[in-house]
Design a protein around this nucleic acid. Sequence first.
DNA 1: TAATGATCATAT
DNA 2: ATATGATCATTA
Length: 222
Amino acid sequence: MPKPTSITQLADAARDLAGLSFADLAQQLQQPVPADFSRHKGWGGMLIELALGASAGSKPEPDFPDLGVELKTLPISATGQPLETTFVCVAPMTDACQQTWQTSALRKKLAHVLWVPVLADKGLSPAQRQIGSPFLWRPSAAQEQALQQDWQELTDLLALGKIQQVNAHLGEYLQLRPKAANGKIRTQAIGENGQQVWAQPKGFYLRTCFTSWILREQFAPN
DNA sequence: TAATGATCATAT
DNA sequence: ATATGATCATTA
């Protein structure tokens, strides 16, 4: 489909995907379906992007630049629990000290998200994965505060040259994990005395407890 | 068995 | 090299 020109048009198009299997959608779009994800980890996300007319490529922009909306698929179990963490963006390794929450890439990325839940229980092949009910989301005040707190803690460590102390155990809702082609990749980072050092690239990921919070608010508000 | 650390494909 | 799209696979 062509680029959606309004939020409403995007939401309508997304809603029409609900209930389709990846096999269904791939057939409609004349796309080949991989037998497994081992060498096609981003295939599902790309398929949804294609279906909704998201901008192609790897530009550091929202998927729908004109609408300011980011697209994220979310693998869930039959009971609606997220099955994986959600990658958001790479971490600022060399200019963490110049970052603020208000100007951060993470806040910008999560300001407006079209979540597309996908039933992805183990045993389901890519073809068998089934698209759930997509929904538009903006972080609530409580959610933004939770993200900000973790982001500040993690970004402070990077800014203060404590990258060697950084691991995925830190952060309640947000964590930093490796984000690279392999474990040998190194990028410039800030060392203990403010000097340049080489370190493994990291990315910000949403823990499943955070995406579970989003799903709860969306589907079981109290 | 959930979570962490590692990895795969493609585009720029 | 670094951004995009994520899931894999080993650990705890």
